[in-house]
Amino acid sequence: MKIMPSCRDITEQASDYLEHALSPWQRTGFRLHLLMCLYCRRHMKHLRLTIATLHRLPEETAQDDSEEKQLEAVLQALREAPPQGQTGD
């Protein structure tokens, strides 16, 4: 096993690193590489910023009233089709 991941390896392992899915050995190599590599540090910073931006998108998306209408339609359909487990006849 090689000790130090390449820049390409870093970009492939980046989410596994953030999701704590790397082995301790891989994690150490990953961190060592970041210490020494400005571009990979930048790449990771941008990945974190990308993720933070994605987190913000749902709230940025304006809600319309069609969701409420949809909810009503679903509830109506469910009312008309009672579950098989329902008691009574």
Binding site: S6, C7, R8, D9, T11, C40, R42, L49, A52
Partner: peptide
């Protein structure tokens, strides 16, 4: 692959490094 393979040299180092972003926050 996650990124365009052309962004790396054959030894796995950056050939086209990540450009600086004009943004620090979402």
């Amino acid at each position: 692959p996650s990124l365009d393979p052309g962004r790396f040299r054959s030894d796995g180092h950056w050939a086209v490094p990540p450009p600086a972003w004009h943004a620090d926050t979402p």
